[in-house]
């Protein structure tokens, strides 16, 4: 069976094991820990829907809900490939793959955004800007740079695109890349109904470039991403609107860093790593100010 645990917490666990001649991953979740993250039951439905739309994702082999011992659970196939961004961006193994990654992620995004809105009923329609505004207010720490960014976003908001199913965390770190290209898009728990440009902006945020120089995940150019996406989706991208979402994505990352430090400070999860993230907020303030006049 070759069973071992990949991650664990009070409400969620992930295990790897072999059965029936193939590698599998078991995820279980006793209850959804917050309102923003999708429950495992919804993630299962979403994974099946996006797979039907030819988005590269692991196949769901089996799933169940409300088990008295493990709660909701799903078993997916374990895929070969690399998830560590710095390896994908630097290792020779991926030298031939890197030039095609932009087209691969553009196509995957176009397919995700083509899924009919009613396919997964539990996906929430939400205004991400308002959601992160609220989070920053709730934390109560003053960040003048982020206030300037929110003010800029407020004054420059582009007209909304046709709403779509968005992944919500579409970036390096959530991709499995193999010798053949983008093998799978992982981590669907932040999926919701929103502006498709949100995903296109998020993948360009500086912290997802992992030291790479190119804006799209460290490996691609914005113009290529947009052209490939337009070809695959039939949608038209306004570069200024895409940039607006990139600025929002940067601000969002800053707020997430603050939340991570707060997890440590509140005692929810004491960790030197989370504590250190609090001092990385200045990097994101620097990044967001670089977009502003």
């Amino acid at each position: 069976m070759n069973v071992h645990q990949l991650s664990g917490g009070t409400s969620r666990e992930t295990w790897s094991f072999d059965a029936g001649g193939r590698g599998l991953i078991l995820q279980c979740q006793r209850q959804s820990d917050d309102a923003v993250r999708l429950g495992l039951d919804s993630q299962t439905a979403l994974l099946r829907a996006v797979r039907a739309a030819s988005v590269p994702v692991p196949e769901v082999v089996a799933s169940g809900e409300g088990d008295p011992d493990v709660g909701d659970w799903m078993i997916v196939e374990r895929l070969d490939g690399e998830t560590i961004p710095r390896k994908i961006l630097r290792d020779d193994t991926f030298a031939a793959v890197r030039p095609r990654l932009t087209a691969d992620v553009a196509t995957a995004l176009a397919r995700i955004h083509s899924i009919p809105l009613g396919t997964v009923a539990s996906l929430e329609r939400r205004d991400e800007v308002a959601a992160y505004r609220r989070i920053l207010d709730d934390v109560g720490e003053p960040h003048p740079a982020f206030e300037l960014a929110f003010r800029w976003l407020e004054r420059n908001r582009p007209p909304p695109s046709e709403p779509a199913v968005v992944h919500g965390d579409f970036r390096m770190g959530n991709f499995i890349v193999s010798a053949g290209g983008l093998r799978a898009v992982l981590d669907w728990e932040l999926a919701h109904i929103g502006d498709p440009l949100e995903d296109l902006g998020w993948i360009c945020v500086k912290s997802w470039r992992f030291g790479g120089t190119l804006p799209v995940g460290g490996f691609g150019k914005r113009e290529e991403l947009h052209a490939d996406y337009e070809r695959a989706s039939g949608r038209t991208i306004d570069p200024d609107a895409a940039r607006w979402w990139e600025v929002f994505g940067t601000l969002r990352w800053g707020v997430i860093c603050i939340m991570q430090a707060m997890r440590h400070l509140s005692g929810a999860e004491r960790s030197v790593e989370l504590a250190a993230i609090g001092r990385r907020v200045a990097e994101v303030e620097h990044d967001v100010m670089a977009y502003l006049p």
Binding site: P144, L148, R280, A282, E283, H286, M289, L292, P293
Partner: peptide, 25 residues
């Protein structure tokens, strides 16, 4: 008063980075 405020905010960020991660500047 955007210009003077943005300048001050950028100066503060510069000082924060001098402590948190000077290499980032």
């Amino acid at each position: 008063r955007y210009d003077e405020i943005a300048r001050a905010v950028r100066d503060s960020i510069h000082d924060k980075l001098l402590v948190a991660n000077p290499g980032y500047i």
